[in-house]
């Protein structure tokens, strides 16, 4: 294989190492491609498709976050087809979940002239907040299913495997084994999932309580008593299995 690959992105030539993604090659010459689910330290899966670009000769658009460069490739990052996909994806996202704490996505909505009211009468995903532990809350009404939390809980970082998916299609959510509370699972409360969540769906308990008008002292009281409750609790069966 050649040491270097030369391609053009928006008619600008760029030379990169083989195996480089279109996204990284574009970064090198200052071409900005939007991303939502992509995270530098998580396995890229090409889920959100906001990073799609047009590659000459390709039947479909190509996700830049996973699409690898090839010699002589011709990439266009802002064609009409690309913009239609990006705008529609943003409009559909806005019709599905609460994006109020997702600043990046909000910027894209402005940039791509996405109409957040494009899909009237759309069924939103509005599950109630899960407050089952003293460390963080799970507000899946804000979850866009970027998979980062599931991945860092598994092979991308922690190897804890406390969370996975429930349902499928539009009904997909992040959940635990038989929907148990997090303290009853293998969760070690490392906080990595909270760290990578892009939309505020996973949030430190303290931050959430502050947002809900609790004072510092009230928060201390509340979380301390919660913590005590949990240390007295017997190790549940589900955890025992995983420890064996």
């Amino acid at each position: 294989m050649a040491d270097k690959i030369t391609l053009t992105i928006d008619n600008q030539p760029v030379t990169v190492a083989p195996g480089t993604t279109i996204l990284k090659a574009a970064e090198q010459i200052g071409v900005k491609i939007p991303t939502i689910c992509y995270h530098d330290y998580c396995t890229a899966n090409g889920l959100c498709r906001i990073c799609v670009v047009e590659v000459e000769g390709s039947r479909t658009l190509v996700p830049a976050c996973i699409g690898k460069v090839s010699e002589g490739m011709k990439v266009q990052t802002h064609t009409e087809r690309v913009e239609t996909s990006r705008r529609t994806i943003l409009e559909m996202l806005a019709s599905s979940v609460d994006l109020s704490e997702a600043p990046d996505i909000q910027e894209y909505i402005v940039e791509y002239h996405a109409d957040t009211a494009r899909f009237p009468e759309a069924e939103e995903r509005q599950p109630s907040v899960i407050d089952d532990n003293p460390m963080f809350i799970r507000d899946y009404a804000k979850c866009i299913l970027c998979w980062r939390c599931v991945q860092v809980c598994a092979d991308d970082a922690q190897y804890t495997y406390a969370i996975n998916f429930t349902g499928r299609g539009y009904e997909t959510q992040i959940g635990t084994f038989f929907n148990k509370s997090l303290p009853e699972t293998t969760c070690v409360f490392c906080g990595q999932c909270v760290g990578v969540c892009p939309t505020g769906a996973l949030k430190p308990k303290r931050e959430w309580l502050l947002q809900n008008g609790f004072s510092q002292n009230e928060i201390m009281e509340l979380t301390r008593s919660q913590r005590k409750q949990h240390t007295r609790r017997e190790v549940p069966v589900a955890n025992k299995v995983e420890q064996e």
Binding site: G46, T88, E123, R168, G169, Y170
Partner: peptide, 20 residues
């Protein structure tokens, strides 16, 4: 809408909106 796996956003949300 019933059979979409839910992995990528266009199909996960698109099949639902199309159905609606």
């Amino acid at each position: 809408a019933d059979e979409s796996c839910g992995k990528c956003f266009p199909c996960q949300i698109g099949t639902q909106r199309q159905y609606e």
